[in-house]
Design a protein around this nucleic acid. Structure first.
Length: 504
RNA sequence: GGCCGGUUCGUCUAUCGGCUAGGACAUCUCCCUUUCACGGAGGAAAGACGGGUUCGAUUCCCGUACCGGCUACCA
């Protein structure tokens, strides 16, 4: 391929963008960047009935969060605009007319009601080469009548005239040779009654006009490939057609079928990249971002859903993905989405990334939870201390709140049963020891704690858990002396004293 | 129903004719850790089925089964 690589992602702004779509974006992006090409984002809004306000912005927000920025789009500009199909409406008619003129398409005057009636009568009714001659179209009507109907602006569509008994095939980058016999292909509508093109006409025209070299889409599009190939043949020449790759579907974790946004609610995991609220129904679909995912992790597990580089590496940065990605190594079969594994990726990224990469997010999360953080250095220390224990960013709230505010609840029930006079005295003594101590490093705190335990004829283990609960409130958190160190002398002593009172 | 696609541990996957079928998630056991994690060691766990081709098939071919997708003036 000597042409510059140009790929496109073409969502319709009908609301939400789930992980299947996001993965298609990712693969487009990786392919484009790997080949030093361009990534275009085209809005396919040819169905005006399904337009959802805010959906376009949402799509861009998701891409931005992931760092997958288009080179050309309705907001990034570019030399091949407009990038919104509704604004290209007039372009398509010309090509539809050309097809009619060359006998590759025809006018059809059947009304939606008539078609519906037909389908009711004939269960598996298809508008195709075997039925078109009993329908109301320019193939069955005489020329004068057609002219008259057109002249009087009778509602009509333009349908492709699929040839009889031909083999149409192409080489899919993932699947290899795929062939269809045209006898099985329907006469799809190309131009709708409202003058808008259907997807079939629009993809072909726009991919040509936008000089797209490689076209990637979900496997669900495979059956309509012959229509598109025929269109390329009739309009622009097969030699100019982009190479196709039909990506494997992302399947439900349980049961069967492709993943849908409803599966998330049902099974308790996000399906969209970011939270999405449907403006019409008010229904909220949860997003990975709000659930506490790092974009690095989101991208990483998306990439591995259907692709791998042949090695045993699993954690990839975006640059590594760009470097190693190839469409030929994408799987043919669908991949079942596994939320547990996606969490593992997030944990890996939390551990690997410098904490500065997500410190601001954690700070915001704490703030949202009512935990004010004024000391950024302290936050950094805390995050560093607890990050191994956090799978999702939201886990930082539970793991670090007690560093910044007194625990709301002290799990005294965990101490009470084994509490006695001896322990009571140990902590009274500990308070005195710590009050006198001039050093406040965790090693020193631990040493004096253990010396005191030994002097009191106790095993450290007997008093370590109570100590933890005094400082943390519960049975969790990093090493207790590290906690004490960060908390500082005054706060540590206050918490011991407070809990001691609770135990009275 | 028709057309198209797919089929390796529970899940994601490696293997491009030589396999004692490798890794990861999850799971189990143990070690480390006087919380929980992290980390370390180990265990259990797979080639849908039937025919070919071949010295040899998970790998190539053909059937069957099963799974999925599509079958709108939606994308």
């Amino acid at each position: 391929m000597d042409r510059k690589v140009r790929v496109r992602f073409a969502p319709s702004p009908t609301g939400g963008l789930h992980i299947g779509g996001m993965r298609t974006v990712l693969f487009n992006y990786l392919f484009a960047k790997h080949h030093k090409g361009e990534f275009i984002l085209r809005i396919e809004d040819t169905d005006q009935n399904r337009f959802v306000p805010g959906a376009e912005e949402y799509i861009f927000d998701c891409l931005k969060w992931c760092g997958l920025q288009p080179d050309e789009s309705i907001i990034h500009g570019g030399a091949y605009g407009p990038y919104r199909q509704s604004e290209r409406k007039d372009l398509y008619k010309k090509y539809a007319d050309e097809l009619v003129k060359n006998d590759h398409a025809y006018y059809a005057f059947d009304t939606p009601a008539e078609l519906e009636e037909k389908r009711k009568q004939t269960p598996n009714f298809q508008y195709n080469q075997s039925t078109r001659n009993v329908m109301k179209n320019s193939l069955t009507l005489c020329d004068d009548e057609v002219k008259k109907l057109l002249a009087t602006n009778t509602q009509h569509v333009i349908r492709i005239k699929i040839p009889h008994d031909e083999t149409v095939g192409f080489t899919d980058m993932i699947r290899g040779a795929v062939n269809f016999n045209t006898t099985q292909v329907d006469d799809k509508v190309l131009l709708k009654a409202d003058g808008m093109p259907t997807y079939h006409l629009a993809v072909v025209v726009d991919d040509y006009l936008m000089k797209v070299t490689h076209a990637f889409r979900g496997e669900e599009w495979l059956p309509s490939a012959p229509v598109h190939i025929l269109l390329w043949q009739y309009l622009f020449g097969l030699e100019n057609m982009p190479e196709w790759a039909h990506l494997p579907l992302i399947l439900k974790p349980d049961g069967k079928g492709k993943l849908s946004k409803r599966d998330g609610d049902r099974l308790g995991f996000p399906v969209f990249a970011m939270n999405w609220t449907d403006p019409k129904t008010g229904e909220l679909t949860a997003g990975f971002r709000e659930r506490g995912f790092l974009p690095e992790a989101f991208i990483n597990f998306l990439a591995l859903l259907g692709w791998n580089d042949g090695t045993e590496q699993e954690v990839f940065s975006i640059d590594e993905l760009i470097k190693n990605f190839s469409m030929e190594r994408v799987h043919k079969s669908g991949a079942r989405f596994d939320f547990e594994k996606s969490k593992w990726f997030n944990h890996e990224w939390i551990k690997r990334l410098p904490v500065s990469a997500y410190l601001a997010t954690v700070k915001q999360l704490l703030q949202d939870a009512g935990v004010g953080v004024t000391d950024d250095e302290k936050l950094k220390t805390v995050v560093e201390l607890v990050k191994d224990r956090c799978i999702l960013l939201t886990d930082f709230v539970q793991q670090s709140s007690f560093f910044f505010q007194t625990p709301k609840e002290i799990d005294v029930n965990a101490i009470q049963p084994k509490w006695n006079e001896q322990k009571q005295q140990f902590f009274a003594e500990l308070i005195r020891t710590y009050e006198l101590s001039t050093l406040w490093q965790h090693e020193d705190l631990e040493n004096s704690f253990k010396e005191l335990a030994a002097a009191s004829q106790m095993k450290p283990g007997d008093v370590l858990l109570p100590f933890r609960i005094m400082l943390v409130g519960g049975k969790f958190g990093p090493h207790v002396f590290n906690i004490a160190e960060v908390l500082g002398k005054e706060e540590t002593l206050t918490r011991i004293k407070n809990t001691l009172q609770l135990l009275q």
